[in-house]
Design a protein around this nucleic acid. Structure first.
Lengths: 192, 192
DNA sequence: CCTTTTCTGAAACGATCACTTCAAAAAAGA
DNA sequence: TCTTTTTTGAAGTGATCGTTTCAGAAAAGG
């Protein structure tokens, strides 16, 4: 009856994410996007929507992907303490190897606080990481691997806020050893 | 002999900083700037330069102001440990009360890593804060107020990276109590 | 194969972008 | 007060912004 969409939407969103990630929302033009996605702007507007809608979909794609990765990793460890330690070291590796930092953090600082839909997505992502860590910490405390008087929610926030800063430090100094040292220090501080 | 400049350059830069702070570099138009600064674009280009140069001057203005404030505060305490504790709590207050977060951090995440001049200014600012904290920690250790085996440089980096994350948490959650709790936890963790 | 329906490509939309031009206004020494 | 020098205001520069239009290409049921 009718013609079918020619391009792979999923793939196109990943390409768009790459561009937004590198240049930021305001630094990215629609031409940047259509060039990278290799589609015409009419196709883009017909299927994915305008720039804002596309950006929202990129955030959703990014946070979903990260969520899946996080849960996969947690299952790979038999003890919650080991999972936490591995989480910290994994974050350090990501900071060092992903040249452009964390897309969610970048976006939180760039977009205006009154872009409610975007802020809500970022908050959800943050909440997920928080409850993920909270659960692990709670289990570690129950097993006696961490102090009895540990406040799991507080420590989870503390971990999250600390590694956010690692991104900034790495942007400014590009010093892998510095990040590794900080990760080691964090493990010693929190998990011993 | 000749006509003199009508507007106060210093004041104009402060106005421009406000706009860049709120909207980011790419989100700010020259009209936004000339409207806020209340000068014509020809005057702007004649005296302060183009958008990039103006942005650089705003960063210089911001970091200089912060540097002065930091040194003033340090002198207000008789013990380095008290100065450190006050530093942490002051940062928490700034995070909570400055609705738009830290300009230097926002900028570090927004501008491209290959804008060398801007990155250099941000790095200098970070280095200053680092050596400021490093000195205080060193003194506290010498006085026996902190552990003998403390690594001052490492702890300084740790402090800086932690409160960077507070900004992100506050942007997402707008929860003053959360930040206060984190500041309290940090004091207990590092300074006891 | 033909009709129907949707998608695609190229061109173009008005608006706004950073930035420039230039005549008129204004300041200050002669 | 006149001349010199510089700033200012308003208008305008081409380029690019996000977005739309629309004719033609392409797919699939009849």
């Amino acid at each position: 009856m009718a013609r079918t969409v020619e391009f792979d939407q999923h793939q196109a969103i990943e390409k768009a994410l790459d561009v937004f990630w590198q240049k930021g929302y305001n630094g990215t033009s629609m031409r940047d996007l259509t060039d990278a996605m290799q589609i015409n702007s009419s196709s883009l507007y017909n299927t994915l929507g305008d720039k804002h809608q596309l950006f929202v979909q990129c955030i959703k794609h990014y946070t979903k992907k990260r969520r899946i990765l996080l849960e996969e990793r947690a299952r790979a460890f038999d003890s919650p303490l080991k999972a936490l330690e591995s989480f910290i070291n994994d974050v350090a590796d990501v900071v060092i190897n992903d040249a452009q930092g964390c897309f969610a953090i970048k976006t939180a600082f760039e977009v205006s606080p009154d872009e409610k839909d975007i802020q809500a997505l970022l908050k959800d992502d943050n909440d997920f990481t928080h409850s993920f860590l909270d659960t692990l910490i709670r289990e570690a405390v129950e097993q006696g691997a961490m102090n009895k008087d540990t406040d799991p929610g507080l420590v989870a926030d503390y971990m999250i806020s600390t590694y956010t800063g690692w991104y900034e430090l790495y942007i400014l100094h590009r010093d892998p050893a510095k990040i590794k040292k900080l990760a080691g220090f964090m493990v010693r501080q929190l998990l011993r």
